[in-house]
Amino acid sequence: MLFAAMTFTIGLQAQIQTPQPSPFQKTEQKVGLTDVTLEYSRPSMRGRALYGDLVPFDKIWRTGANMNTKITFSDEVEIGGTALKAGTYAIFTKPGASNWEVYFYTDSNNWGEPSEWDDSKVAAKVTVPAQPMTMEVETFTISFDDLKNDSAILGIVWGKTYVGVPIKFITDKIMSSAIERVMNGPTFTDYYAAAVYYFQADKDIKQAKEWMDKAMELNKKPAFYQVRQKALIYAKAGDKKGAIAAAKESLRLSKEAGNDDYVALNTKTLKEWGAM
């Protein structure tokens, strides 16, 4: 009975979880068409001096706490002029007073730094400035900043220091390939999506206008927001008359749909174009 009681007590104790001093964080972010997953542990300052003390200058740092800080890309990306294949990488850094070296390491299963650093496992390396901040961030944070269709900044923040790592994405390559693939037998949706993408990405606006016209030929009852995109593409292509006609049609359709946001958008645009 005593043994059974001890076993029960030990089992009960093993089920108790305590808060971690450096809690785990998992962030999922889509950039353009690429899925990015970031996993890391977040230490806090707790009154300690950071860089040059707790985190020494000019030495490899795990960039966080506990297991490796890991980043996973669903597609190829570019960092520091180096193409990085889709996959998972550990992020290591070498902090300096003015600049940081940031490493993307193929072995991501270490607790802290690797026991033996292997330069052949460095898939990409970039040197970026350490930017001082006026505010102080207590808990170590990595974020995705300045998001665009084909780029993002991986922001590393702790204390009064911000380090931004530029990452380029192959969104245009993926999108262009998809457009080329479907144009053998495109639907309204294909033409429409291709036109809007070309418009938003500042690509060939004449091609965007052509695709939008084909989309509208295939869909006799487009929605108000789709006609709105047609108006914007026409305006950018220099067809003001066609743009005004499309904006008026979008305004009519948005009123019928009871969408006040698009009523306001179209009204404002028509006024700017001198049509109201």
Rank of each mutant, 00 (worst) to 15 (best):
A152G: 09
Q131L: 06
A152F: 08
T141M: 13
A124H: 01
G155F: 06
K125V: 00
M133V: 07
T139E: 10
E138D: 14
K121I: 02
T141I: 12
G155I: 07
F144L: 12
V157D: 11
A130R: 06
P132W: 11
T134W: 02
I153A: 08
D118I: 04
V122S: 07
I142M: 12
I142A: 03
W158R: 10
I153V: 09
W117C: 02
V128M: 03
P132T: 06
F140C: 00
M133Y: 01
N149T: 08
V126N: 03
W117F: 13
W158Y: 05
T127W: 06
L147S: 05
M133F: 03
E138W: 10
K121L: 09
I153C: 05
V128N: 01
V137P: 03
K125H: 14
W117E: 08
V122T: 14
V157K: 14
D146Y: 03
A130N: 15
V126Y: 00
Q131A: 13
S143R: 13
V126G: 03
K148M: 11
I142P: 08
V137H: 09
T134P: 00
V126C: 00
T127I: 12
S151D: 05
W117P: 00
V122L: 04
L147E: 07
M135R: 10
L147V: 11
G155D: 12
F140V: 05
L147Q: 05
F144K: 06
V122E: 03
I153S: 05
D146Q: 11
I153E: 12
K125E: 09
A123L: 03
D146F: 09
G155E: 07
V128G: 01
F140T: 01
K148T: 09
I142R: 09
A124C: 07
W117T: 07
P129T: 07
K121R: 13
I142E: 10
P132E: 05
P129L: 00
N149W: 01
T141F: 11
W158V: 06
F140D: 01
T127F: 01
D150T: 13
F140I: 03
I156R: 06
A124T: 04
N149M: 14
S143K: 14
I142G: 04
D145R: 10
S120D: 13
A152M: 09
V137N: 09
D150Q: 01
W117S: 04
L154A: 06
V157R: 06
T127G: 09
S120K: 13
W117K: 08
